[in-house]
Amino acid sequence: MKKFEYVLRLADSPLILGQRLCEWCGHGPILEQDIALSNIALDLLGLSRNLFQYAAELKGGNVTEDDLAFTRQEREYQNFLICEQENGHWGKTLLRQFFFDVYQYYFLHALKNSSDERLAAIALKSIKEVTYHMRYSSEWVIRLGDGTTESHGKMLDALEALWPFTGELTQFDELDLEMEKIGVIKNLAQIPSQWTNKVIEILGMATLPIPEKGWMQKGGKSGVHTEAMGFILAEMQYMQRAYPGAKW
């Protein structure tokens, strides 16, 4: 059942981040970018769906992907805190995306060598997507960081708001390490330096400062979320909660 827990964990972050990106649909700064961000949301939700399907199979019985995605309690969700943070402005959304994409890029590269064939296959498919996401979000971080005085200032604000939530991306807990021990995930130890190097490179190009390591928030992996999470779930789970057991 440890593996079930782990697959759920992998599914939760793209679900919650995808859910956040859905809020942008119809409200983007220009049509072309509205469409682009929806594509990323579709990729993230698609990935989470693949993982929830696998988790449901591991769980067995009558459990469905939607039971897992929509009917758990807040404390049972294990997504990174950064994924649930409010969208804020376009720059904050893209900076949040960038921090996650860099993590996800290296993480999925590690996962593609998983001893679990199903996870390896899911990772392999998603690597193509995340490669594009990372390029897209990197470009926006650079463009806005090095754009106008106003955009630079807004990116500084976003950096300050989001940075404390980045520590979690490169901290591994017992479950992670246990999965590494049995080969479900490999070479976790590489990820922190890979993440840091990429982030330093892009923030540099964006003429944004590299923040001090500083105090880092954590709690996502143990299900202790920020206050934003309850509202996300209230909205996301509304139908499943209002009509328990109904098919849609």
Partner: peptide
């Protein structure tokens, strides 16, 4: 709200 983004 997108104006500063397009401008940047």
């Amino acid at each position: 709200e997108g104006a500063w983004v397009r401008e940047a």
